[in-house]
Structure formats: structure tokens, C-alpha cells
């Protein structure tokens, strides 16, 4: 019995051992797995570390870049500050040179005003002795012509005619200098009516045979009296320089072009050489002698001055022996209601 018991015990023990063995094997297998797992995790960590190292390097690099960039920005900033200062300096310089220009303009204006007031008072004071010369020559002619012979009368006539010319010249100069001082009063001007007035004034002061054509002229915004003066001068010229034609013809036209009103007076008179066109509008500039056509050389410079004051331009076209056309432009102010 004892043996049997022993045997059972042994079997049991054996089974136990087998079980334990199995357990151990399981455990070993588990450990192998765990080990593999650990090995794997270890690998992962190493990878991660390597990645972190790379990321770190990257950050370090970026950091450096940022530092570099910051350094660059500081330089740029300094540059900007410098530029700003330069600009300030430049602005101050500009202000100063502007002041200089203003000062110069002021001086030019003063000098011009001085000259104008000088020419005004000279012309003004010249009238008095001239009036006396003319008046006494006239008295001499009226009271003593019976005792003067033909030559004496001719001398007297020369005195009178030259005193008269000088009077015209002085009046022209006065008009010219007045234009420098006088402001302009703009209103809407009916050019057709204005021309009629100018022509009636001209016809009253001298006789001529010119045919003068105009119709439907565009209205302008301008100083009436000054524009009257412009057309008086242009038309008197046109009549004068076409007076030797058999059929003098003068045409006044107007058109609207590029935001401007353009007026023209053309004649079929003696014309002029385009070579001298730049001299036409200068004071005392003449393209004809007084024997050919009498004039003071102030008329067109008055026209120029008036139109310039209206922010317009003057110009001329001509051909010797074939007539001339004088143009002037005025800003087209049809937006202004009157």
C-alpha cells in the first residue's frame, strides 16, 4: 500500500513538475516576448532619441538663423533710421531752397513792379510836354500859317505828326504797363457782340475797305475789357496789313479743341516770314518799317500779355505775301454757370 501511495505521490509530484515545467516554459515564452517587446521599445526609444537629436539640431539651426535675421533687422533698422534722417535733412534742404525760390520770386516781382511803375510814371509824365508840343504846333499852324511858306508848313506838319506818333506810343506803353498791375475780372463774354462793338469802334476811328467775316463764335469766360483790347489789336493789325490788297478779307473763327477754346483772326494781307515768328509778340518788335506800315510794336505784346493772364496761349502762322493768322487759346470753362 505504501508503494502505491508512493507511486501516487510520485505521479502527483511528476505531474506537478510537468505542470511547473510547462508553466516555466510559458513564463519563458512570455519573457521572450517581453524581452522582444523591451528590445523593440528600446529600439523605438533610440529612434526617438535620434529624432530628438535631429529636432534639437534643427531648432539650434533655426535659432541661429533667427539670431542672424535679428542682426540683419538691426542693421536694416539702423539703415532706415539713417535714411529717415537723410530724408529729414533733404526735407529741410528742400524747405530752404523753396524759401530761396520764394525769396527770388518776391525779388523778381518787386523788380518787375518797380519797372512797371517806373515805365508808368515815365510814360505818364511824358504826356505833359508832348501835349504842349502838340498844342503849340497846332496854335502855330492855326494862327501863323499865312506867314509860313510851303517848307515851313511841311516842317510844322512833321512836328505834329511825330508828336502824334509819340502820343500813340505812350498810350500803348501805358496800356501795357497797366496790364501788369491790373487784375482780371472774368465773366461770360458773347464774342459775336464783342466783335461788333470792336468793329464799330474801329470803323469810327478810321476808314478801311476790308470785308470782315465771322459767325457763331463760341462764348468765353474772360475779362470783357481785356478781350475787347485783344480783338481791337488783332483786327486793327489785320486791317492794316491787308490794306494794300484790292479785296482785303478778314475772317474770325473759333473752335473747341482738347479742353480749350481757340480763336483765330486771319487776313489775306502781306503776311510774314515764319523765320521771324518768335519776334512777333515781343515789345517794340516789328517786322515792317514805319514807311511800309506804321506801328509802335506794342500791340501784339499787349495781346500776348492779356492772353497769358487768362492762362491761354498765343501763336501765329503766316507766309510772306499770302496773309497771316493769329491764334489764341482760352481755357474752356463751359462748366462754369453764369
Amino acid at each position: 500500500m505504501a508503494t502505491r501511495k508512493k507511486s501516487v505521490e510520485l505521479i502527483n509530484a511528476n505531474e506537478e513538475l510537468a505542470f511547473q515545467n510547462e508553466e516555466k516554459e510559458k513564463r519563458a515564452a512570455e519573457l521572450v516576448i517581453a524581452n522582444k517587446e523591451l528590445a523593440f521599445q528600446n529600439g523605438e526609444e533610440e529612434k526617438r532619441i535620434a529624432e530628438l537629436v535631429i529636432a534639437n539640431k534643427e531648432l539650434a539651426f533655426q535659432n541661429e538663423e533667427k539670431n542672424k535675421r535679428a542682426a540683419e533687422l538691426i542693421i536694416t533698422n539702423k539703415e532706415l533710421v539713417f535714411q529717415k534722417e537723410e530724408k529729414k535733412k533733404r526735407a529741410v534742404e528742400l524747405i530752404n531752397s523753396n524759401k530761396e525760390v520764394d525769396e527770388l520770386e518776391k525779388r523778381v516781382k518787386e523788380r518787375t513792379e518797380d519797372l512797371e511803375s517806373f515805365s508808368y510814371s515815365v510814360s505818364h509824365d511824358l504826356r505833359t510836354p508832348l501835349r504842349v508840343i502838340n498844342g503849340y504846333a497846332n496854335m502855330l499852324e492855326e494862327d501863323y500859317s499865312s506867314v509860313l511858306d510851303a517848307e515851313g508848313k511841311r516842317f510844322l506838319a512833321e512836328v505834329r505828326s511825330n508828336a502824334k506818333k509819340m502820343g500813340v506810343l505812350i498810350d500803348d506803353l501805358l496800356t501795357f504797363s497797366r496790364l501788369g498791375r491790373q487784375g482780371i475780372k472774368k465773366s461770360r463774354v458773347d464774342l459775336n457782340k464783342l466783335i461788333e462793338t470792336v468793329l464799330s469802334d474801329i470803323n469810327q476811328s478810321f476808314t478801311h475797305k476790308a470785308e470782315i467775316k465771322f459767325s457763331n463764335l463760341l462764348p468765353a469766360v474772360a475779362d470783357y475789357n481785356l478781350l475787347h483790347q485783344v480783338f481791337t489789336n488783332l483786327l486793327s493789325n489785320a486791317i492794316k496789313y491787308s490794306s494794300k490788297r484790292e479785296k482785303p478779307l478778314i475772317e474770325i473763327k473759333s473752335e473747341r479743341k482738347n479742353g480749350e477754346l481757340i480763336y483765330s483772326v486771319s487776313d489775306n494781307g502781306v503776311g510774314f516770314d515764319m523765320h521771324y515768328v518768335h519776334k512777333l509778340f515781343g515789345v517794340f518788335q516789328r517786322l515792317h518799317s514805319n514807311e511800309e506800315f506804321y506801328g509802335t510794336g506794342v500791340g501784339l505784346s499787349i495781346v500776348h500779355r492779356i492772353i497769358h493772364k487768362h492762362d491761354g496761349k498765343v501763336w501765329a502762322e503766316g507766309k510772306e505775301g499770302e496773309g497771316a493768322t493769329f491764334f489764341f487759346s482760352l481755357p474752356d470753362r463751359n462748366d462754369i454757370k453764369h
Binding site: R127, T128, N134, N138, K164, G167
Partner: peptide
Amino acid sequence: VKPVEFDEF
């Protein structure tokens, strides 16, 4: 205005 021309004056 005293004109230069006597006749006008």
C-alpha cells in the same frame, strides 16, 4: 483826361 492831341483836348 488831358489828351495829347490838342483837337481832342
